[in-house]
């Protein structure tokens, strides 16, 4: 049984480590850890619901657009907005 620690994994945004257990040339276990925690679930609490549009964009700098858009769609549902496709 051999253990291989592969850290840091580069060319990505954020931090990642991989630990492999290898037994006679076969990978028996792979532990992947994203070694960063900010607690966004806690941050979102106690905020006005409309803040979600801007605040959730700060979760990820690559897909911020997706977070912002989904938060906007959610608000439309919550407020029962009927917005035509163009306006969306």
């Amino acid at each position: 049984m051999q253990k291989i620690l592969f850290s840091p994994v580069t060319r990505l945004s954020g931090l990642l480590s991989v630990e492999l257990s290898v037994d006679q040339g076969t990978i028996t276990e792979a532990d992947v850890s994203a070694t960063m925690f900010r607690g966004f679930e806690y941050i979102m609490r106690n905020h006005h619901v409309t803040d979600a549009v801007y605040l959730t964009q700060r979760i990820c700098g690559i897909c911020s657009m997706a977070h912002g858009a989904v938060a906007s769609y959610l608000l439309d549902q919550l407020y029962d907005n009927d917005i035509n496709e163009n306006a969306q």
């Binding site: 945004s13 954020g14 931090l15 960063m36 925690f37 900010r38 700060r58 979760i59 990820c60 700098g61 690559i62 911020s64």
Partner: peptide, 12 residues
């Protein structure tokens, strides 16, 4: 160094 962030600054 990248620490507690969302990776937005390297994209920018």
């Amino acid at each position: 160094l990248e620490t507690n962030d969302s990776g937005d600054n390297n994209i920018a």
